[in-house]
Amino acid sequence: MLEVRGLCSGYGRARVLFDVDVAVRAGQVACVMGRNGVGKTTLLNTVMGLIPAVGGSVVFDGVDVTRAPTHVRVRSGMGYAPQGHETFAPLTVLENLKVAADGLPRSGEAIEEQLELFPRLRPLLNRRAGLLSGGQAQQLAIARALVAGPRLLVLDEPTEGIQPSIVAEIVEVIGQVAARGVAVLLVEQYLDVALGLADTVTVLDAGRVVHSGQAADLSREEAARLLAV
């Protein structure tokens, strides 16, 4: 579903990513891991087109989208929930979902689907998103990324700073989404969450891939060694 090959990117002259390869198949969860500052978020932002790629290619569903603007990628079926459970704070929960669902043939049904996936959001529909707790905001952020029915879901640390009970709910939703055939590209710091969900694992260090393979082949000890600070 997603093929990232030889991707290089960065900010101005500062290179952050060197020759990164990542692939995600439909229905699978590909987890990108690494210490702070190794380029995980930069990788996701480059995949989504928020940062221009300096080299390499991003191919989504057989189409090269390396130069496509972000909204075109999103409309072609790539959904993204950025780091830090970002929402449109001045808009209500319902408006947050509508913004992403506008223009869909059945936007009402699409929003209803998300409310079934995240029942906690239903009583909060008319609350401004800026007033949500971290966990609620993260659920809204994922629902917003899912509402257009993407075939690829890109998530940046969806469990960061969120209470354990909601982490469990989010993990369950990610599993359900993948089971429906959506490809999931996940950046995750918590080893348990990552290894519990992932089909494949890619470990980054200093902007390069230092490990790539099936999650089942990666022992906890090996993972801990690769991620050691």
Binding site: L50, T70, R75, T87, F88, L91, A100
Partner: peptide, 12 residues
Amino acid sequence: HNRDLAAVSGIA
């Protein structure tokens, strides 16, 4: 409110 988030919501 947030240009990047709007772009990843499919807004031109």
